[in-house]
Write a protein that binds this DNA or RNA. Structure first.
Length: 1053
RNA sequence: CCUACGGUAGCUCAGUCCGGUAGAGUGCCCGUCUGAUACGCGGGUGGCCGGAGGUUCAAAUCCUCCCCGUAGGACCA
């Protein structure tokens, strides 16, 4: 038979898996397999047969790393599974194009740094650069995604910078506005006066942004407005590290519960926190403590402003009560400048004090602070302190070293400053979000009420505006004259066209800023409607993805209604504050529905010391190298079989050894089974088919075991438990290769065609066919290679998920056979213990215990596996073992209470007896049959018999360890066979080559060879056996099995 | 400082909800190559369950406090 006639491929024993993978990827590409797998599944009426998957958009600039690869694998596994289940799963790639990372990259590339520089460079040119630079890595992304065998469409991808996407975002903003869920407000934020820009939390976390800085720390006195009952002038002491905020002071805060001490010196009374007084020993040396006040007694009192600039300010210059005040640092009295401190602003607002912010964009004092106008606030610290000293207000001047945020771009210290910003009123519908979240299936489950649930409960209003350039514009136009206020919010291109007379083809700045019109509410006609300059937080856009990707509601209205919410999304755990959250916010605010029903949160990939992966440290294996040397399926398995998919972390070693392990543990075993099948079926010209009516017990076992595999993997996949599915496949492979195939091999060796051999081929074929389908989502490349090679059909990914019902159901057989495997393990362990090699036959093996007769059905298997002449079952437990009492403590505990202790010790030491009625007496107690079980332990000191119990402790295995001359001789014969076979192999003989055979050696070996000549010759295909001296030019091998040198030689004839 | 998650064999992790006498894989050690697989097979070794208290007849499991790791958040007047 020529290779061409062979029904199955010529499968190499040790292939290059990466090479196979590249071949499969090529095949998919040329045959359009992905598109086919989607198209064949009907969407059903109104998309009811669709499984809706949302692909969270990654930032387009920057290369993928292991985190992305992991997410990508899961984004592939679940849709592949659902496709095989018959669902239509559209997969569309998305790109997150806007946002600070994109701008930072552009600034770096253009050598333009900071807001002012960008404005000078030209917003149009800057944004044009962003538009192209942001797509710089899309090719690389596509290459990675394809190499990892992830099926997702790039040809109809969506981009957050598309006009249609941005129009939908605009619509969403207007909807929120109409619902009263958007507002503008002043909030205190970190601000870089040097770069003239607000700095996000994200930016303050960049390396070294927080570092030590020495600032002045001063204590100043505020004189209270006298009140009847005062014993003279009263002053409170406040401490600050930002003297430049004192001109903007509008209030003082004390802790209502805090105890304040009153001191007197020269008739003036001082108040400060009692706990802080010790710090001011020096200043208070001449003072005398005369009393105590609680914070609440101070609340409400007015004081004289330190500076005159805002002296008429409404409701200002009073002492307020605030919970956050403490006496750890400072005096227990906090100076409040609501324009420059978050707490300050909040507390002042609660007390009806409007903030003031006399500092301009450059960080210089405005005209409002006349004495220091034009001075940078930090530089103004000194003159301000001098002024306070001159005025006698300064109590103490020291320095203070603290961790302080710096601008990562200019290295200058940041300041806290109130800025205008737009907010989504998340607090208004927070409860609805919490409610929607209850219905979401989170993996792992604790995320629902833990990380995500807690975050929702504590949700605050969401700042959605960014004082930047490259992003979706805030679609708000305001009158430029406060005398004629008007605000217009736009939600579509139509509305813009209606009011401005032109229809924009691009919504980006600066084009959008050029749309202006006269203020309709201004009869003078002088004021103009202008767009507020901010752009939207790019997270707003990613949260808008479910509808913006299809240009809802301008198009695809029905489609969206049918495809929302998503069935499934997956991202890493930190997205509970990111995409998971923004999806929830917008879906709740706009549609009062959750945006997704099932969500996997995976953990973080770390290096083997538990540190983050870092490009700079190169503490991880290069993904390309992993693809080239181990393959994508191995990486997929390594990542997805780990509990990183259950929210844990995963450590990856620098050399990628663990990835190589996946090849060894899973991919090679699958390949070996496939290889074995082809190796024998091909020369036989056997064509196998899917069948389940085989009668041989091993066949029925492996088919029933396969059914269990299908059932269990289906359960796991339905529960989105990918690691569990992986574990099931792995333990199945062990049963397949190391039990079913190994115990069935001899059926393939028979020369003639016979039904039993065909049964074996059919069984193995059937099992492999099902296994490939079950493992297809988990190992899409290798299973497809095996599946197509085996069946000649089209890709496994175009097949249906296997139906467990088509395989025989026989859990009893599976359990019995698995027990047989345990008996064999135990017997082999006894051999090991007694140093009796497996080739040495032993007389008998006895299994003793309840219901061991049924094991005799498998006696042949056991006999072969452990090499004994006979296998026997015995109910006579006393010969082989004794019982130990195992108390069912859970049942007895509550009844016996304190005497449990003695019962437990007595049961362990064997101090108990059975009663006639089936109960047992132990210590002082009598146990009902339900309250205990008996564990069988092997008896010790048996003559010629080695015993050991199964792990389940209900069966004892006894091995006859006495040998006889006959057994020894047979053992030697088998040793010879082994040695001869090795010799055959060394000479690269084919399994069917016939040979002549020479054996030289000690007398016992020669006797054994003579006694077992027929057996030996048959085993090694020898036509002639000679004990003459071996001809000198023959290859021979030497062994010392029998204790002295044995030499064998073979020659092909 | 707060929140979530974790700390169980050398390593990676089950087991903890619902208390009842500690598991897997891997590593290591030993053995093993007879016609698919030595990238294999079999066996063995290995743990005062992060620490300290408490509840209980009984705690890896429940409670309290503490320590360590990871992630996120807050604060830095």
């Amino acid at each position: 038979m020529s290779p061409d006639d062979r029904p199955y491929p010529d499968v190499p024993a040790q292939p290059s898996f990466p090479e196979i993978e590249r071949g499969v990827l090529e095949r998919w590409k040329s045959q359009g397999t992905f598109a086919e797998s989607v198209d064949r599944r009907p969407p059903g009426a109104r998309g009811r047969n669709e499984f809706v998957f949302y692909d969270g958009p990654p930032f387009a600039n920057g290369l993928p790393h292991y985190g992305h690869l992991l997410t990508g694998y899961v984004k592939d596994i679940v849709p592949r599974y659902q496709t095989m289940r018959g669902r239509r799963v559209e997969r569309r790639f998305g790109w997150d194009c806007h946002g600070l990372p994109a701008e930072m990259e552009a600034e770096r590339e253009l050598g333009v740094s900071g807001r002012r520089a960008i404005t000078e460079y030209g917003i149009d040119r800057f944004n044009e650069h962003c538009r192209t630079s942001v797509m710089k890595y899309t090719g690389e992304w596509q290459r990675y995604v394809e190499r990892q065998a992830r099926w997702v469409r790039f040809d109809n991808d969506y981009k957050t910078m598309d006009l249609s996407y941005m129009e939908s975002v605009m619509w969403a903003f207007k909807e929120l506005w109409k619902k009263g869920l958007v507002y503008e407000d002043h909030r205190v934020k970190t601000y870089s006066w040097a770069a003239e820009t607000p700095v996000s939390n994200f930016e303050t976390r960049i390396d070294d942004a927080y570092r030590e800085r020495q600032d002045p720390a001063i204590t100043v006195r505020f004189r209270l407005v006298p009140r009847s009952g005062d014993d003279g002038p009263l002053e409170v002491l406040a401490w600050t590290t930002t003297p430049w905020t004192l001109p903007s002071n509008l209030a003082l805060a004390v802790g209502p519960e805090i105890e304040y001490a009153v001191f007197v010196e020269d008739g003036v009374r001082f108040v400060l926190g009692a706990a802080a007084a010790a710090k001011y020993e020096g200043e208070l040396a001449g003072a005398e403590r005369v009393g105590t006040l609680s914070g609440s007694e101070l609340v409400g009192r007015s004081y004289e402003p330190l500076f005159p600039y805002f002296s008429g300010h409404e409701r200002a210059f009073r002492i307020l009560g605030a919970e956050f005040v403490d006496t750890e640092e400072g005096t227990g009295v906090v100076h409040m400048a609501p324009g420059f401190g978050e707490d300050d602003q909040r507390v002042c607002r609660e007390n009806g004090i409007e903030l003031v912010c006399p500092v301009d964009e450059k960080g210089n004092f405005t005209e409002e602070v006349a004495d220091f106008v034009g001075q940078n606030v930090l530089a103004a610290n000194k003159p301000i302190i001098r002024r306070l000293k001159d005025d006698g207000k300064l109590v103490r001047h020291e320095t203070y070293v603290h961790n302080y945020p710096h601008c990562w771009r200019t290295d200058e210290p940041l300041i806290f400053k109130a800025l205008e910003s737009w907010y989504v009123k998340v607090t208004d519908f927070r409860d609805r979000m919490v409610e929607h979240n209850r219905g979401i299936n989170w993996i792992p489950g604790h995320v629902r009420d833990g990380q995500f649930g807690k975050w929702l409960e504590g949700a605050r209003d969401w700042s959605i505006s960014r004082n930047r350039f490259w992003g979706s514009p805030i679609p708000v136009w305001k009158s430029d004259d406060p005398a004629y206020p008007r605000i217009d919010v736009y939600g579509s291109l139509d509305e813009l066209e209606r009011d401005f007379g032109v229809r924009p083809t691009d919504l980006h700045r600066p084009g959008i800023d050029e749309l202006t019109r006269p203020n309709p509410d201004d009869p003078t006609g002088k004021s103009t409607m202008r767009r507020v300059p901010d752009v939207l937080d790019c997270w707003f856009e990613s949260g808008a993805m479910p509808f913006a990707q299809v240009h809802y509601p301008f198009e695809n209205k029905e489609w969206f209604d049918d495809h929302f919410p998503a069935d499934f999304i997956v991202e890493y755990i930190a997205q509970t504050r990111g995409w998971f959250y923004t999806l929830m916010v917008l879906s709740t605010a706009l549609f009062d529905r959750p945006a997704f029903q099932n969500a996997i949160c995976h953990g973080v990939v770390l290096d083997n010391e538990g540190k983050k992966l870092s490009k700079r440290l190169r503490n991880y294996p290069d993904p390309d190298e992993v693809f080239d040397t181990r393959g994508s399926d191995a990486l997929r398995w390594f990542l997805c079989s780990s509990n990183i998919l259950r929210g844990g972390d995963l450590q990856i070693d620098r050399e990628g050894k663990a990835i190589a392990e996946s090849v060894r543990l899973v991919i090679i075993p699958i390949w070996n089974a496939y290889h074995f099948f082809c190796l024998y079926a091909n020369p036989d010209g056997a064509e196998a088919r899917v069948r389940t009516d085989q009668t041989a017990v091993l066949d029925r076992y492996v088919l029933a075991k396969t059914r269990q595999l299908v059932e269990q993997v289906t359960d796991a996949m339905n529960a989105y438990d990918v690691p569990r599915a992986c574990g099931l496949v792995r333990s199945f492979l062990d049963a397949l290769n190391n039990w079913y195939i190994r115990r069935s091999r001899d059926r393939a060796w028979r020369k003639e065609k016979d039904p039993d051999k065909q049964d074996f081929y059919d069984t193995l074929y059937t099992v492999l066919e099902v296994l490939c389908r079950v493992a297809a989502p988990l190992l899409p490349l290798i299973t497809d290679e095996v599946y197509t090679g085996l069946t000649g059909r089209e890709s496994v990914h175009l097949q249906d998920w296997p139906d467990a019902g088509e395989l025989p159901d026989d859990p009893g057989l599976v359990a019995a056979m698995d027990r047989v495997r345990e008996v064999c393990s135990t017997a082999l362990s006894l051999r090991e213990e007694h140093r009796l090699r497996v080739r040495l036959p032993l007389a008998s093996l006895t299994v003793a215990g309840a219901d061991t007769q049924s094991l005799l059905a498998f006696a042949d298997l056991i006999r072969d596996e452990v090499n004994v002449k006979s296998v026997e079952a015995s109910e006579d437990l006393d010969t082989f073992g004794s019982f130990q009492l195992v108390v069912n403590a859970r049942a007895v505990g509550p009844r016996l209470g304190a005497s449990m202790k003695t019962v437990m010790t007595a049961s362990k030491s064997g101090d108990w007896r059975s009663l006639e009625d089936g109960r047992v007496a132990v210590a002082e107690a009598v146990l009902e049959p339900t309250e205990f079980s008996l564990r069988l332990l092997p008896k010790e000191g048996l003559e010629g018999l080695a015993v050991q119990s199964l792990p389940s402790n209900d069966v004892v295995v006894g091995l006859d360890v006495r040998t006889t001359p006959e057994l020894e001789q047979e053992g030697l014969a088998r040793d010879l066979v082994r040695q001869i076979q090795a010799q055959r192999r060394d000479q690269d003989l084919d399994v069917s080559d016939r040979v002549r055979l020479w054996i030289n050696g000690p007398q016992d070996v020669l006797d054994a060879a003579a006694q077992w000549t027929d057996y030996i010759c048959k085993q090694v295909l020898a036509v002639e056996l000679s004990f003459e001296p071996i001809p000198g030019d023959w290859e021979s091998s030497v062994s010392d099995v029998s204790g002295s040198e044995t030499r064998v030689a073979v020659r092909k004839i």
